[in-house]
Amino acid sequence: MTLTVPGSKQVQHFVLKGDLVVVQDVREALMQGRNSDGKMVRRPLSPHLQVYRPQISSALSIFHRFTGIALSAGALLLALWLGAAATSPGAFSLAQALLDSILGKLVLFGFTLALFYHFCNGIRHLLWDAGYGFELPVMHRSGYAVLVATVGLTVLFWGIFLVIG
């Protein structure tokens, strides 16, 4: 028997043979249950994001991941930029021209925003690791401080950039 998980494709996580449940994968042993109608279902994984009210704590947490993934792409760009500089003057001036275009500037703006966010929220994470700032009001305040600092540092960076350039 194939069981259906609401909102997803059909999955064959366990098989019913009479009253016996045959589990295909030992990890599924903890995932089987019955709904209020007594029908066998695969239990949803916690946290149930679809019914959670968005909160600053969870939003900033997932931002940290998003910006981390974006900055990984930024690191590849950094390697290509250095590679162009090491290749030839022409290759580097092409790279600089691409970065100086409107699309290039937009991408760089996104990277500065992501970098300063990941930097500030990273300090917050390191302080948690050291055992500080776990109280809920402190955690919310530090979260808003991260947002303010991110915008402040990004504005400062592009302000200096415009003055120099």
């Binding site: 500089a85 003057p89 580097f92 001036s93 600089q96 990273g122 200096i160 950039f161």
Partner: peptide, 21 residues
């Protein structure tokens, strides 16, 4: 990466519009 990324940001500002030389 805390001090190194600040150094990197400063370098990017110093090298804005730089040529290969």
């Amino acid at each position: 990466l805390l001090p190194l990324s600040l150094y990197f940001v400063a370098s990017v500002l110093l090298l804005a519009g730089a040529n290969q030389a």
